[in-house]
């Protein structure tokens, strides 16, 4: 029976492959160090052009001490998870995505309000509950109510 490797990439000779391996590993290590050691040594990060070298390898290394959870209620006053108003599903991480989106863009709540009011044409209340997890992770330190209506999202 004929045995033939199925892959035929652009990397032909042994030397080409070895150069690719060394270059790839060196770049990956350089990219990782760009976000750790370079920042400490040079006080800045360098643009390494390739997209996978842009943000370093961060996985929960520094966690927020003050966090917020989000709910909303319609005219009946029953509270629901605010993620229910997000039209694009996110499989397996819907709360995390909402929280990160609000962190990245404070206007994200306004956007949700705009979309929700446009679809429902009824006033909603948004509840933002804040926790200081290193003080008391179970008791909210602050709760803020926002009104989502025809004039956008505003403080109550």
């Amino acid at each position: 029976m004929k045995v033939k490797p199925r892959a035929r990439g652009i990397i032909g000779s042994v030397t080409d492959r070895r150069v690719l391996v060394v270059a790839w590993i060196a770049l990956s290590v350089l990219g990782a160090m760009n976000h750790t050691i370079a920042e400490k040594l040079f006080g800045q990060r360098f643009d390494l052009v390739l997209p996978h070298l842009k943000y370093g390898h961060v996985m929960f290394n520094k966690n927020l001490r003050v966090v917020q959870t989000y709910e909303y209620a319609g005219p009946d006053g029953v509270r629901h998870d605010l993620v229910e108003l997000v039209r694009t599903p996110s499989i397996g991480y819907r709360h995390a995505r909402l929280a990160i989106n609000v962190l990245l863009k404070r206007d994200y709540l306004r956007e949700l309000c705009y979309r929700a009011y446009g679809a429902r044409k009824e006033e909603l209340s948004f509840f933002v509950t804040e926790y200081q997890v290193d003080v008391d992770p179970r008791t909210p330190s602050q709760t803020k109510t926002l009104v989502c209506g025809a004039h956008g999202l505003r403080d109550r």
Partner: peptide, 20 residues
């Protein structure tokens, strides 16, 4: 070549996440 490089990429990511 491809599995070797993907493995290297993955393990470098995990290792440096630990270093961070």
């Amino acid at each position: 070549l491809l599995p070797g490089l993907i493995l290297a990429q993955t393990l470098i990511g995990v290792f440096f996440a630990g270093i961070e």
